[in-house]
Structures are given as C-alpha cells and as structure tokens.
C-alpha cells in the first residue's frame, strides 16, 4: 500500500503548493489524479515517488513511514518506483543512445549479464524497434523517446508506477500505445499506478479510481 497522509509540500518555506493532501494507492490499483494547471499535482506525485521531501505529513510504504527522500532514500525503496514525466527531452540524457538510456538502471544494480535480455523484453513491451536503440534522443521523435523513457522506468520491475502527464505531448495513437504498455506491465506484475493528468477522458478511461483536485486555496 502506498499512502500519503496530510502532505504539505512546496518549493519555498512559507508558500506550499500542496496543503494537507492525502491519497492512497493499493497494490494493483490504478489511481488517477486530475486537476487544473498549477494545482500541485506534479509536486504531490514527486513526493509519492520519493523525489521531493514534503514539509510535513507522512508517506507510508506498506505501512512503514518513509524518512528519507531522493538520493538519501535507501536504494530498495527508490527502485520500487518507476517514474515517467511529461517532457521526455528534459528527462533523457542527450548523449546516451536509447539502448543505454533504457539499460542504465540495470547497470547500476549489477544485473549486467541479464541486462541484454531485459533490454530486449522492455523494447518489445513499449513497442520500440531494435533499429532505434543506437540512436540518440535528438535523432528520434518525442513519441519514440517517451517509449524509451517508459522502458527505462520499467527496467527494475517497480512495484509502483508514477506517470506525470506521460502523454500530454503525444498524439492519440502513441498515447493509446503507451497506456497499453503500462497496463500490460501492471497485469503481469500487479504494480500500482498513480497517473497524473488534466485530460479527464483519458484518466477516467485509464484508471480504476480518480481523485479530483481543485485550484490551490491560497
């Protein structure tokens, strides 16, 4: 179980963008988070994925409170999360060919020998063709790069997926393909999902349950 309790978070001490927010995601469950621009959805998603330390409140992972965020978080906690953001160009190292981009998390765990097989499986899951793996980010389209970013997020078989506006830049067909890849992964692993977005139709179609947020009450 992933539980956010009474989270307040932001970027400046006295101006939190998230106030007293609570949210839970059960294993295998897909929860959508909808809200207008600037309401703090992405900040809450980053807290949930251990990427942003909240000012106050508790994050419980299977009943255990999380005490450390970002690089200070224990490795086994960090690798329990796979995260995909809106803008693949901002999250991908422009120097890395797609194969290295996808396999980077595998190398860090010393899974080197199994890595080639895992890379092939991931490539198939997200619908990339092998000829694209030697290209660098500027040599592929946004849709192709986002497929690679999803493959990378799935590389360590996370139990929790956080997709923050994963498809906002993408056309309808690539959107449907990426959502199908996420759902395929979740069916085979039982992973839970937090999908953040502002497209009501998409989030309702995709998720089991949807939480609506209003604009920040300041």
């Amino acid at each position: 179980m992933l539980e956010l309790r009474d989270i307040t978070a932001g970027y400046a001490r006295n101006a939190p963008v998230v106030r007293n927010a609570s949210l839970t995601v059960a294993p295998g469950e897909a929860v959508g988070l909808l809200g207008p621009s600037g309401c703090g959805k992405s900040t809450l998603a980053r807290v949930a994925a251990l990427l942003h330390r909240p000012d106050s409140g508790t994050l419980l992972l299977d009943g255990e409170p999380v005490r450390r965020w970002r690089h200070r978080a224990p490795r086994e906690l960090r690798t329990a999360f796979g995260v995909v953001f809106q803008q693949p160009r901002l999250s991908a190292d422009p120097r890395l060919p797609l194969a290295d981009l996808i396999a980077e998390p595998l190398r860090a765990t010393g899974e080197g020998k199994a890595a080639a097989e895992r890379l092939a499986a991931l490539t198939t899951t997200v619908g990339l063709t092998p000829d694209l793996l030697s290209r660098r980010p500027h040599e592929v389209s946004d849709g192709q790069l986002q497929r690679a970013c999803l493959a990378r997020a799935l590389a360590l078989r996370p139990r929790w997926l956080v997709c923050d506006e994963m498809t906002a830049m993408l056309d309808a067909s690539t959107t449907a393909a990426l959502v199908a890849a996420v759902e395929h992964y979740r069916r085979s692993t039982g992973a839970g999902l937090l999908a953040v977005g502002h497209d009501h139709v998409l989030i309702h179609r995709w998720c089991d349950r949807t939480v609506h947020w209003k604009a920040p009450s300041s």
Partner: peptide, 15 residues
C-alpha cells in the same frame, strides 16, 4: 480517431 480514449482506445500498430 479509434485511438482516442472516448472511442476504442486502440493504438495503430507499429510506428
């Protein structure tokens, strides 16, 4: 059009 979430939500195969 069939790929839209308020229609079939099925991607066009391939790229």
């Amino acid at each position: 059009l069939q790929a839209l979430p308020d229609r079939a939500f099925i991607p066009i195969p391939g790229m």
